[in-house]
Amino acid sequence: MKYVDAVQVQKRMNFRLIVNTIAKIIFFLSTVFGLVVLGILIYRVFSDGIGWINMDFLTGKLSTDPEKAGILGAILGTLWLMVVVAPVTMFFGVGTAIYLELYAKKGKLRSFIQTNIANLAGVPSIVYGILGMTVFVRALDMGNIVLAGGLTMSLLILPITIVASQEAIRAVPNHLGEASYGLGATKWQTIKNIILPAALPGILTGAILSLSRAIGETAPLVVIGIPALLIPFPGSIFDKFTVLPMQIYYWTLDSSLVEEYAYLASATIIILLLVLLLLNTTAIIIRNKFQKRY
């Protein structure tokens, strides 16, 4: 007698195919759910804000008068913030990941550090704001400048960057490293020439996601004390600044006083989305450039 009975297989086949289709529908619906919500959001934002976007808005200074208000200061602030956050996060994030994955001995200490990094990723962002306030703004006496804000943001997104980079490094097949060691390469030569290039696309994907988070985050900057209005444009990382999401926050907050502020907030959201798109595209292009090498 055969164990796989043809008649039984036939009978169950219909059922199996139905389950197969249901699975597909469930996954499709979950995608649709996200897309629909996103679509509604974008539609609302655009219908409210698109009319307010013009050259004056893009290049103007902040102002209490909705007709005169511009957000160049906030755009520059966001970009300057990234000038600090991107390199600091990449350096310390990837550095930590390399140490943990490739140097640290597997043991209690390592898993202790590992668990704590994972926990830090879940700490509310406002706590990082308090940390930044205490350390950078007060103890190091920087004041609420781009550098202080950037370092605070870096701390906030560091855990995510570390974990993502670790995953990417772990995904590099062992046999590549072995081939390099087998040729007499040192550990650092192997990491630099073989492991990092192979892990880079994954590392950049993680970095893109965490930098996007930093661009949209407000809470830590609220704690550090970002001025609500009327400051000169920041020209370096040592200047005071505001960022796009802060501007959205203040305008939304005050929209009960001045109705037009709500539209300005929407317009700023559009700009924020564009900045995100721009940065992400750049990162993706860099990533693909490295991927093509293989």
């Binding site: 046999h175 072995e178 081939a179 060691y181 087998g182 040192t186 030569q189 020439n193």
Partner: peptide, 28 residues
């Protein structure tokens, strides 16, 4: 390891060009 080379069970070229694969050892 420079004097005692190794060839592995599974072919394990680097994800680089043929040229770069060979030049890797001398370069390091």
């Amino acid at each position: 390891r420079t004097q005692v080379g190794m060839v592995f069970q599974k072919p394990n070229p680097f994800p680089k060009s043929i040229y770069e694969n060979i030049a890797y050892g001398p370069k390091i």
